[in-house]
Design a protein around this nucleic acid. Sequence first.
DNA 1: TTGCGATCCCTTTTT
DNA 2: GGGATCGCAA
Length: 882
Amino acid sequence: MFDDIPILTDDDNTAPLPSAGARRPALSAPANLAHSSQPRTAPPSADPNTFAESLFQGLTPPQAQAVRHTEGPLLILAAAGSGKTRVITRRIAFLVSCGVAPWQILALTFTNKAAGEMRERIHTVLGGAVSEDGTENRRTRGLTVTTFHSLCARLLRKYAAAAGLKPDFSIYNTSDQLTLVKKAIEAAQLSTANFQPRSVLSVISNAKNELIDAERFAAEAYDFSQKAIARVFTAYTRKLREANAVDFDDLLLLIAKLLRVNPDVRAECQRRWQYLMVDEYQDTNQAQFQIASLIAGEPSATHRPNICVVGDPDQAIYGWRGADISNILDFEKHYPAAATIKLGENFRSSPPILASADALIKHNKNRKPKPLFTSKEGGEKLDVVQCRDELHEASLVAAWLRKHHDADPAEGAAPIAWREMAIFYRTNALSRVLEEAMRSANIPYTIARGTSFYEREEVKNALAYLRVIANQADSVSLGRIINVPTRGIGDTSMGRVEELAERTRSPMMEALRNADQVEGLSARALNAMAKFVSLIDAWTGGGTFLGANISSTLAELIDRVLKESGLEAMYRAQAQTTKSESDLERLDNLAELISSAQQFELEYDAASDPASDLTGGPPSADGEAISKLSSLAGPALAPETGLAIIPAAAGNINVIQAPPLLALLRGFLESIALVADADVVDPSQGSVTLMTLHAAKGLEFPAVAIVGLEEGLLPHMRARESDEALEEERRLCFVGITRAMRRLLLTAAKYRTQRGMSERTITSRFLEELPREHVRGSDQSDPYADLQGTAWGTHAADDEANVSAVQNISSDRQRPIRELSSGGASGAGRSPFPIGSSVRHPQFGVGSVKAFTAGAQARITVEFRGAGTKTLVLEYARLTKA
DNA sequence: TTGCGATCCCTTTTT
DNA sequence: GGGATCGCAA
């Protein structure tokens, strides 16, 4: 039931990272003097040579070569499973051991999860090297490992003014975008019937990915439809700016633009980051390409950019969102001095799996031939099964997983833990049936859907309140909650206020404040609006976030908002009347939101705050001390905004610093806006992972099942129009197959029910493309076969397998969660969980209790298996006995 | 203004 | 099958 609640990942904010000591204006930038052309000083390690040597242990010659190549452009073509992450990690460690300051290194990944893992691994490698004086932390200090989107969000906060934004801008997700596009279509006096918001949005998004803004789009529009969309684009952009908001594409677009047109910003970034690494380079789009090249600097006689890109053209699966495979194919053209290293040997998959993947990908015509090889031997054939329908398919997958989980070592088959297994599918819609099958087979599972928690109505509403608090111009969020719970401000009244806002070109919140100027508003509505405004003002201290009445922690703030807005009461009343499980869950989810804010706050490092000086020099010694200042000791405030304006370290760029609570709130909202599905994958959970093929990129599992190998699904219907799209589908399938280490199951269903209709399917061409000798096929689609048993392997060629789908024996099956949850703040004098006892947390899994502090905000310290040691506030932690 | 029921639409992948 | 939207009654 709680499986799909995501983990608020170890976001960048939690890392000891871009801490440039920017809480104080560093008036000079001494660090900038350090330049790559200068000779390196000795590494800080006691025995640098031994340490540096240790970094090459266990590497193949090409891997070692890639690690050793530190200066000048480098292209690493890393085939699937070729030890790419290892190379990147070691290479960064090697750079540091060569004396490069960590803060001069920038590594860009695709997901927060990947960034977090890489950071951890670098930390492990480097941390182990120094032992004497406890300085290990300092060795990764200032290192920037993050995603393109996070980096851009931070840079945009810092350079907001230069980009024409206020630093408290909101980041709009797809549903916010849709709301705004609808309004833009209306504003352009078009009909949403002729111009579907979704498709208009995708046109706009594609344009932005290619760095085409509204202005240029309008200039280049040639026919009626293009011109109409151009008008929508213009209106949409205007509305975004009026809401002081950016969408995902803007994060990249605006930074790319800024880097191009603003020499100060560009110079600052170039000075700060002398070494740039980009992972998954085959999936970068035009905007990302520009950002990377601009930070690296153009190659010239005097400048050899230290840019290292890693990727694999065969794993390019994001063409549909603007990724441009020619970025990686043309790298050597763009950087003529580039060295290229090919990592071809696969260390992950068994020979049959690898050979199958290789055979499949060879069917792509538009592809450079590339060897894919392993020195491994043996291995099991792939299982390929034709099922009756999706229900049969799901239970068969469950049985297959169970079989491998319960395998008997005595019979020569090593058992595989749940967490070492995954199920992939092409579309999210397929997950439901699988989920049900996992439940009835008592197999613990997790769905990798990072955003699902934040997409629930109650959480969305709570977040909308927070976004209005952080950014009062955020009209989309305001529109969402102005009448939730109902306070008598209906569409008619809001329409009138909107008119005023439109007419005066002022933010909605401003118009609300001036609602008495609006004609035709009922006294009731007017009164309600005034009350609403004063609510917001009370929470924000009139926008200053300072003063005695202002909450001092994020969790307190959210708690207060939930109570005073009436949101919590609304859901409680609802739960009481309906008594339905789903309504009870809403309250839990709100508590969970507070809990995740709590967690965020505990792990928050103010020194890595978005508003801090990302591009400045080395971290200052007092960075940490400053970050602990209380909320009352903030810097002097600018009268209007409550924001302090501080001159930047270098250049003429103003850095605006927010009061701590506001900064925290921003960081929290930002981390939520940028979560990815793959961020949720957590091996410590001890459960099977269900996810889309796209989300599977970069991961590996000993046992993998891929379902729905049918024409129209994989390859997807929408991809059949062009060869290009079809080849991308094949790559997607290739990515899925190459995630598997030892066991792989591919299934198709003869009949599949979609949107209520059962239809006959055709098996995927991709299955035909697999080499027979590596496949153990079986057709179990006979409708007269034993309907109940779905016994895996009864029809299969080998008899080794014969496991019933519905076994109830399981050592680590899921337990009901809502057993204990300790009665809130009261009764927190004693821990309900004795020290040393074992507890379970919905996000972090199982751990053992290490410490307990009593009090109103009783805290409990738990050492989680895999998730590390965390201190949680008991009231919110939702711990249960494990 | 609100809340409910009927109807329509839609179906990929995601930072 | 299910979510969003629309229309109608209170």
